[in-house]
């Protein structure tokens, strides 16, 4: 408790409420309202309709939604797999390698996503590997961009797990492979599902690298939203964004349910 008198707290709360409304609540509320608005030429929308939402779920937009979901699923899974592998392998690696590789794995956070996209364009528009124009280049871009986060999540969980679990398992006669499969990976599962959730959320909203590399037949929803705004169809864009958020939240809830499901099987009846 910093402010002890109740009367002195009110002005602070008022200031907080104002900032919170402008910064956090208003953008979200406006987006939802716009997605449902027929027109908006005044302080409030002119009327409400679900037509935009309907449009966002059909035709090209629906295709983009599916592309986004598939991209997020593939890139997220790959990132969790590679990230977990990296975290486990580096934990046993010599110190110089661990430090160096750790810095390298965090690098995509620091590099602008547009540059990651440009790099892939430059590198894979030429032999030996021609990926430009295929969906693979989008998937690779997403993998690179979310890998840092999934690696960091799993690696930090790994440092919190004591070595003695693996040691005891080994002393009981478990070969390294069995220790990995039955002890280390199950104990990392919560972190891996958190990493997957983060990867999916980031991938679903990725626009910088995707807009550099996407082929016509693999356009993600954020790129479609941009095309819509660019053409002035802002209500459709708002509706598509709302759908994007909805799809992301549903995926996250499912992932959360999966990991919590694993955890709650722990409580016996």
């Amino acid at each position: 408790m910093l402010i002890w008198s109740r009367s002195a707290r009110w002005p602070i709360w008022a200031l907080f409420a104002a900032a919170f409304l402008v910064i956090v609540a208003a953008p979200l509320a406006v987006l939802v309202a716009a997605a449902l608005a027929t027109e908006w030429n005044d302080v409030l929308p002119g009327g409400f309709t679900v037509a935009h939402l309907g449009a966002a779920l059909t035709g090209e937009n629906q295709g983009s939604l599916l592309v986004s979901l598939q991209t997020a699923a593939v890139a997220g899974l790959a990132a969790v797999a590679v990230g977990t592998w990296a975290a486990l392998a580096l934990a046993a690696a010599p110190r110089w390698l661990r430090k160096g590789a750790d810095g390298l794995l965090h690098l995509p956070v620091a590099i602008p996503s547009v540059v990651v996209g440009l790099g892939l364009l430059v590198a894979y528009s030429r032999p030996p590997l021609l990926l430009n124009g295929t969906r693979w280049i989008v998937l690779i871009a997403h993998l690179v961009l979310v890998l840092s986060f999934s690696y960091a999540t799993v690696a930090s969980a790994l440092t919190r797990i004591d070595d003695s679990y693996a040691q005891v398992a080994a002393s009981l006669g478990a070969r390294p492979a069995l220790v990995l499969l039955r002890i280390r990976l199950p104990m990392l599962l919560p972190a891996m599902s958190a990493a997957a959730a983060l990867a999916v959320a980031l991938s679903m909203g990725e626009v910088g690298a995707t807009i550099m590399v996407y082929p016509p037949d693999w356009r993600t929803l954020p790129v479609t939203v941009f095309t819509l705004t660019d053409r002035g169809r802002t209500f459709d864009a708002a509706a598509a964004t709302l759908i994007l958020l909805g799809a992301t939240l549903v995926t996250l809830l499912i992932l959360g349910r999966v990991s919590r499901g694993r955890a709650t099987t722990g409580v016996s009846p």
């Binding site: 046993a92 690696a93 590789a101 690098l107 690779i140 690696y151």
Partner: peptide, 21 residues
């Protein structure tokens, strides 16, 4: 062997990030 195990993720990173850069 620890070096070998660390190789695959680093190859991914090298191919998709370092080489392009």
């Amino acid at each position: 062997s620890p070096l070998l195990w660390a190789l695959p993720p680093l190859v991914v990173l090298a191919g998709f990030l370092i080489y392009p850069l």
